[in-house]
Design a protein around this nucleic acid. Structure first.
Lengths: 192, 192
DNA sequence: GAGGTATCGATACCTATCGTAGCGAAACTC
DNA sequence: GAGTTTCGCTACGATAGGTATCGATACCTC
């Protein structure tokens, strides 16, 4: 209904489908070389495309990483019934995701870049955190401040362990984290 | 007793006392410009010394930041009597320190650099984390794994909030964090 | 004071990264 | 074929970490 008469495709050479292979190359490069050494040039080479092609899709390395993480995380699974089991499954889900090869490094890396880059911080909060925050508010019936606290505790703990040791948190500690958080959120204490 | 006959001072021009002013310049530069923009050159200029002088003292920006944080934190205050009050005061202490201007940004920044720099990660763990971990193990009588979990939760949560919002955690949330952690550590559940 | 030594500031330099610009070639529509 | 857009490639500018060099300077010993 816009310009092309019959087909909806715009004129010119169509873009090649490159997102999936670039995302995979991003995670594997970050996993193999670390976040800082995973330059856009190396990621592009691993994906088999030119660096300029990557920059045509993503305006900065930070946004590429955010999109890659969004693709890696996918939607928050919410099939559980009770509030308690829902929170527990969310904790296990994010812990498992952060433990996947490259995901934790990429997450911690872009998070740290955001510390000194307010624009990237806004993107991180809006694109990566807000969708899950809203889904949790909706599913749990908790106010925004409590859900933000929940995310700070769970994600902050997992990333701190990953950043300090270089390896994901062990299952026993994940269970302890879940137990601690659940007790806090399911006992009498009202909203903060 | 080594080379100099009477005084223990080595020959040559003595180093000027520059640590304090460089640390202050580091924190104020990080606070004003952010971690990434706080280049060694700018920090040196703010301190009134040459960049080469900084690099004579600290082999890398990361080690400068670690030393600066060590100086900013100082020893963990341990005058409290009971285990519970001791943990609570430790949480309030680290939260207040991370809330000081520049400290939280510098901490989050060097932490993120360490994600992709194993050498820096080892320095961070050995110089910044281990002393406090050992002090806590000693004061609380907890095994290493539980103290590491404690540090992951408290520091990870505070840094995640700082990194995501750019401002330190509010007192009400710090109180909630302390309450949650204390309940976890003072109830029946044994060591992980 | 003379000599030795190590630090000082200043400048230049190297390497690596992010991100941009310009180019001819290729792919698609009409 | 004409028009348009993306492709890969190469080169470029800007910035940062970190190193090397140099004359000047401050301190100690003799």
């Amino acid at each position: 209904m816009t310009s092309a008469t019959t087909s909806g495709r715009p004129p010119g050479r169509p873009r090649i489908g490159v997102n999936a292979v670039v995302f995979a190359a991003t995670l594997s490069t970050v996993h193999d070389l670390g976040y800082a050494a995973a330059t856009v040039e190396r990621i592009a080479a691993a994906a088999g495309v030119a660096k300029t092609t990557v920059y045509r899709r993503w305006p900065s390395k930070g946004e590429l990483i955010v999109d890659c993480l969004l693709d890696a995380f996918g939607p928050l699974p919410l099939e559980s019934a009770g509030r308690t089991e829902l929170m527990a499954s969310a904790i296990r889900w994010i812990a498992a995701k952060i433990g996947e090869p490259g995901v934790g490094d990429a997450f911690a890396g872009v998070f740290s870049d955001a510390v000194s880059d307010p624009a990237l911080r806004a993107i991180l909060a809006a694109r990566l955190q807000d969708p899950y925050r809203l889904a949790l508010q909706d599913a749990l019936g908790e106010p925004e401040s409590r859900v933000l606290f929940f995310i700070d505790v769970v994600v902050g703990t997992l990333l701190h362990r990953m950043g300090m040791t270089g390896v994901p948190m062990a299952d026993a500690d994940i269970a302890a984290l879940a137990e601690m958080v659940l007790r806090h959120f399911t006992d009498g204490t009202g909203p903060v």
